[in-house]
């Protein structure tokens, strides 16, 4: 049954919900106890923090991080890592010869990663 196999996962969701419900009152209590925001409204107080300077421009702008290559590589290698778990957890039930294709797969991925890392140094292409 689907329900039975999913049932243990509900506890993870429940503890997530419990943590949210149990800590949300802290925000409410803080809201009640702390000096009121509305009463002493001062436009300067609600400006974004920029070390005392008057903020200029938008907060949500383009920002050149220069390490975009790594994020692109993550998309591939994270999936690869999870695929390796599917292989690793059933390894004991597989014949020995089944390990060779996986090592070949690792070799291909490793070579691809080496090439991508080599390219990632050339930051002007990203």
């Amino acid at each position: 049954m689907v329900g039975e196999s999913v049932a243990p996962y509900s506890n993870v969701l429940l503890i997530f919900g419990f943590a949210v419900v149990a800590t949300a009152p802290a925000l409410l209590i803080s809201r009640m106890v702390s000096p009121g925001v509305k009463k002493r409204r001062n436009p300067v107080k609600f400006l974004p923090m920029e070390c005392g300077q008057v903020p200029s421009g938008h907060g949500r702008t383009h920002f050149m991080m220069q390490y975009y290559a790594y994020v692109l590589m993550f998309v591939i290698f994270d999936v690869m890592a999870i695929f390796l778990y599917a292989w690793g957890s059933t390894l004991l039930n597989l014949p020995r010869t089944a390990t060779l294709p996986i090592i070949a797969f690792l070799g291909i991925m490793f070579a691809a990663m080496a090439f991508a890392l080599y390219q990632s140094k050339r930051k002007n292409i990203w």
Binding site: S30, S34, G36, F46, G59
Partner: peptide, 8 residues
């Protein structure tokens, strides 16, 4: 808890 919550 007693600090005011300020949101930009």
């Amino acid at each position: 808890v007693s600090k005011e919550i300020i949101i930009p």
